[in-house]
Design a binder for these strands. Structure first.
Lengths: 345, 345
DNA sequence: CTGTTAGCGCTTTCAT
DNA sequence: ATGAAAGCGCTAACAG
């Protein structure tokens, strides 16, 4: 079992193989300027000592850490879970490791993790930013020349590679669908306007209503935190209004979850009393019970494509101009919209 | 905006502040052996230059990278998603970053990522190993003196800190519950025996049957990959047998998902034709529609506790002996077991 | 309280 | 094809 593998360095390997550290380095880095014989001797020594070169030292001198980072507001959101999984997969296949950061949608946390990632000298970051207020954080990345790709959301005033969904178009489709089902009072539960996807979904909602000649009633729009609790409270407010909506468009899957709970807590039901549609599916839930009518987005593609763009930038293969990819979603009609039992106002 | 922040080093800060690099280092590391005045000057220089110390260099000389790793077989499994989120949270609060590795339950991937993590000189690893065959990988960690904590599964022949669930007891509870409902032919869909949790759940299943004086019929036990597809196929086989079970215990939530699909594909239904219970809830699904009767495990606690144990070890606060924590689960009865409509054979 | 001297383990750049 | 020298950016260990 030889000595302790723990602290074997390139020197130990070199002296055992009877060569200089530089030659060992060449073997490690698969340089071809090494004679087959030397190569074999070095490889034997490496195996014998159980040598694993330190990325730390390599990174310090070669300025390559082999590390990326993925920053999301909430890994537990099924959409981001898939983004993260896909990113990790693509990164690993290209021999990169990924540091995961969950900001919990907290700007201060986002600022801190970005500082830390710069300190770690990660080679690139795929980030679903908290909101437009993330701008200074991204500016900081730019200042330190850390390549980054925006995932799912753009940030006002920041030009860079991005992979986003068609929020305007998707929202329009969802609302048009509700209108086709006969609904005239359609509520919206959306998160703060400073989040690009939310802003655009609201725009899609408004333009669909306008196109149908329906009025825009501010009383029908609720702003909420993008989670079940936010949805619960927002739907509670909508339900307690005098002229409550007959249908509601929830900005995402988790908000929809809370909204449904609110409806049920009131003794009402979805879709009979209130129809509901939202962005993003909850795959495992739909598999068990096809309920949510949703505009499904290809979450994994956000992750794979985003990471590929990032790797392209890092390896200098990036296009000159910023590359913004807009991924289309797909409307999947299930029960929550009441497609079979039209419930107009 | 001064010069490029990108390559500011401790020397630049030192010369701007008119001190030695060592003094700057002391300020960075919050050593108290610096006069208030010097401290201010250094801090001013740091701010002016936008200096962010390199963790790489710090790590190389101080032998502390400030990085942990979490290895799971599948981040998309809601149980592991929560483990990962909790681990990241605890780590960040202690000023550590976490590298996420998803092995896809593939031993070769697990081997590779572990080598990489050693190369990265991570300070510790929380790992839900693929199976008992992960032993050599863990032995390698031990050889390199990388502290690790097992999450959710133990590994035969490896003694170390671990946070696991009560699989035997939980399985017993689930099966006893089915027996109480009148079932006598109870199937089991389990993953390979080399996974400790699966092995123990099978033991719990068997001991519950024995305790009730029921026979152990090998035809009722199906081995499957621990995902929906595995559950689908396994349940398919169970259903096509001559004397099919009236109830089935699925080793986990994802397997249960597939099993339910298989039942429905056959034109039958859960729980009317086949009752079903499993380990681990799918929170978002249950929130939408309380269906799965499950032995719920506190996934986040697996992550927080595991990471705390790991940090204790790293910082030398670890107990002398290995620390194995067994977390109890909780049986939550919903519809899939047919608790209200007893459907015995 | 502050500075000097040596590295941490590897790779770059030049020789040979 | 191989090696020697220098240094990546920081900190431990010692001095004063």
């Amino acid at each position: 079992m030889s000595a302790n593998s723990a602290d074997v360095t390139i020197r130990d390997v070199a002296s055992l193989a009877g060569v200089s550290p530089m030659t060992v380095s060449r073997v490690i880095n698969e340089s071809d300027r090494v004679s087959p014989d030397t190569q074999r001797r070095v490889e034997k020594a490496i195996a014998e000592l159980g040598y694993i070169p330190s990325r730390l030292a390599r990174g310090l001198s070669a300025r390559r850490t082999g590390t990326l980072a993925v920053i999301v507001p909430d890994v537990a959101n099924p959409f981001f879970t898939m983004v993260v999984r896909a990113a990790e997969d693509v990164a690993r296949r290209s021999a990169y490791r990924v540091i995961l950061c969950d900001t919990r949608a907290d700007l201060a946390v986002e600022r801190d993790v970005i500082e830390e990632l710069i300190a770690h000298r990660v080679e690139g970051i795929a980030i679903a930013p908290v909101s437009d207020r993330s701008k200074p954080h991204l500016a900081r990345l730019a200042r330190f020349r850390v390549p980054f790709v925006l995932i799912d959301r753009t940030v006002a005033g920041i030009e860079c590679d991005a992979v986003v969904g068609d929020s305007v178009g998707g929202a329009q489709q969802l609302v048009e669908h509700l209108i086709r089902l006969g609904h005239r009072r359609i509520g919206l539960i959306v998160e703060a306007d400073e989040v690009s996807s939310a802003r655009e979904r609201r725009q899609g909602y408004e333009s669909a209503l306008r196109a149908a000649g329906l009025p825009l009633d501010p009383a029908l729009v609720e702003v909420a935190t993008p989670d079940p609790d936010g949805g619960l409270e927002a739907m509670g407010r909508l339900l307690s209004s005098e002229d409550r909506p007959s249908a509601v468009f929830a900005v995402n899957n988790l908000v929809a979850l809370g909204a449904i709970e609110a409806v049920r807590n009131t003794g009402l039901d979805v879709p009979d009393d209130v129809a509901l549609v939202c962005f993003d599916d909850i795959e495992f839930a739909s598999r068990l019970y096809p309920f949510l009518t949703a505009l499904e987005q290809p979450a994994e593609t956000f992750g794979t494509l985003g990471t590929r763009l990032l790797l392209d930038r890092i390896e200098g293969r990036g296009p000159a101009r910023d590359h913004v990819v807009v991924l289309p979603g797909q409307l999947t009609v299930r029960r929550s919209c009441g497609a079979q039992a039209v419930g107009a106002a």
